[in-house]
Amino acid sequence: MVLANCKFRALFATKGFDISSRALAAIFGGYIVAATACGLLSLSLPLPKAESVLVAMMLSFLFYLAAALWSFSVRKNWQAWRDLLCISTLLYLIILVVG
């Protein structure tokens, strides 16, 4: 049990794990951030409906970009997951409240 635990720890500490974790956070976590931001902006922008959807969609890629950069610049890879998931959950909750 202890041994398995050690191996687990070692796996988490490898460079490969670090990179894959960040990459997955950037790709999927980033997409969720972009998607929720897009959804929220569509609802909350002070424009006619179709226009706010358009603006939200056009801007969403910038959120994706920022999120991807973020997940590679934080110090530890779990922080990337934490930040992106927190932000997207928050955004989603606001969508539930507003929508």
Partner: peptide, 17 residues
């Protein structure tokens, strides 16, 4: 990205429409 955004980012349509 914008030319195909309806496919990549349909979430605005999902919430607003």
């Amino acid at each position: 990205l914008i030319t195909l955004m309806m496919m990549y980012m349909p979430w605005g349509v999902l919430t607003a429409y």
